[in-house]
Design a protein around this nucleic acid. Sequence first.
DNA 1: AAGATTTGACCGGG
DNA 2: CCCGGTCAAATCTT
Length: 301
Amino acid sequence: MACLPDDLEGAVREVAEVYELIKTHQPLLLLSHLGQQEPPLAATKLAQSLLSEALRALNIALSVMNQQSQESSASPVAVKAEPQLSASSSATAAADSNGATTSPAARSGKRRRSVLTEGKNSSSWVNLTSVPYDDGYEWRKYGEKKINGTQFTRSYLRCTYKDDKGCLATKYIQQKDNSYPPVFQVTYNNEHTCNCTTASPAKKNNLSDTAMASSNPSIVHHDVMIKQEATVGLPPLADVSGAVPLDDQMPSQEPFPIADHYGTIGAGDMGLIMMESILMGDDTELQDIELRLLYNSFKYY
DNA sequence: AAGATTTGACCGGG
DNA sequence: CCCGGTCAAATCTT
């Protein structure tokens, strides 16, 4: 990134990319420590601390940028949740959780979008990410639509535990463009009430999904996330992971293959994939990247 | 067989 | 009437 992008969206993307690069390569440090018996060298510790600082800086930068784009609404991209979102999903879910509304007869009278005019109790927020399924929850796809003016279809997902636990959380995933890594706009509706992350023991690998998801924010969550109706005062900091599992990439014409992973890919999966990609990746890049990233991050500060 | 995904249809809002 | 969000039967996967 030689020069500053002239639009906010571009800037956000640039910062997000740098963020992801750092996140992706940061674990290498940890891995190298694991390989050694001795305690980490002071230099390595310093590098780690610098990286952490860089991440923090980028995080803040992203949040500020997203706030700006939200305020100016100059860039409708990523950060602005579409207004009509919360109502519909909560309406449906509420009807369902009210019990028994799901009789076939009741169903034929389907959709009632505005039943639950969303109030303060429902919220929606948007997340820009390259790994739209990796948010620590299990999702089940319930629909897909081609949306006007968009290049790719939009996928609708709801919490796997909607029926079991009446969890109202839904989200939809919209791929933004053909870029690499692909950028997805994930719009969330309603908080999870199921309290079940993809730590699920039933999952394929044992890589301690939850641990990675919750206790090590540097590995799992990611990207630009702006809460629209924050229940707390300030919007959360951007939460970016480097889990970009795409190594040699697909033809850029094809939409990113979301279809295989709905509801099944969890944080641990992504962690695994990331580890693999790291192990296979070329380290030669790393040192330069660190310097470059630090430079880049502070440049934005 | 059970659970997940796909896909066309339905519905309500604008 | 168009469009976005959801439903639900059909199909696929495990």
